[in-house]
């Protein structure tokens, strides 16, 4: 259904995408997709309690709109779309989530190495310092492994705009991140 795929899709998971939603319990749907939804909102908002609340609200909204969704692939697409749009709206509305200035992210005392948990945290902070629209594109690309065309569908934007955001977001991240991971291959 539209080429959607999970980060670690195997045969069983691909088959599950085409199972009619009506045959599945809603609780199963929540369990199956809660990690994706929570992670999307967490990486965009960088606020665990807010991310949990937003993710739960997304599923409540899913429950109200379930009759209009035919397959699990529809559900996945719908959840990604709603979670991203709600997260962006929340950022724009909330003064408690000011975009972190890239320059204000503290630098480590020593360079980080790959696999270093501090590095991942540092990268997450840098991602959170991006403007909301660039941040969302980066998260969808690297958390969900989506192609620009798929991201464009979720965000209802032209593909060239998504590519431009991705390019710009990576350029900003590269500038700051090179101090932690060394010079980055372009």
């Amino acid at each position: 259904m539209g080429g959607f795929r999970l980060a670690a899709a195997g045969t069983g998971e691909v088959e599950a995408l085409t199972v009619p939603v009506a045959r599945r319990e809603f609780a199963d749907l929540v369990r199956e997709h809660q990690s994706m939804v929570y992670s999307l909102s967490l990486h965009i908002l960088r606020d665990p309690p807010a991310a949990e609340e937003l993710a739960q609200e997304g599923f409540l909204q899913l429950h109200r709109n379930l009759s209009g969704l035919k397959t699990d692939a529809h559900v996945v697409h719908w959840l990604r779309k709603v979670t991203c749009h709600r997260s962006i709206d929340r950022i724009r509305r909330s003064k408690s989530h000011p975009e972190v200035n890239l320059a204000s992210a503290p630098e480590p005392a020593v360079p980080c190495y790959r696999g270093d948990p501090m590095l991942s945290e540092r990268i997450r902070i840098l991602v959170a310092s991006l403007p909301a629209d660039l941040r969302t594109v980066v998260v969808l690309r690297y958390q969900e492994e989506l192609e620009p065309a798929e991201i464009a569908e979720i965000l209802s934007q032209p593909v060239r705009k998504v590519k431009a955001h991705l390019h710009k977001g990576l350029a900003l991240l590269r500038e700051k991140a090179k101090r932690f991971v060394g010079e980055v291959e372009s």
């Binding site: 980060a7 992670s39 945290e121 991140a177 991971v181 291959e185 372009s186």
Partner: peptide
């Protein structure tokens, strides 16, 4: 795949919901 992208994939992997 460059090192930044590797780092991004590591950092942005899905996490378990609470």
């Amino acid at each position: 795949m460059n090192r930044l992208e590797e780092a991004l994939r590591d950092a942005l992997r899905r996490e378990e919901a609470p």
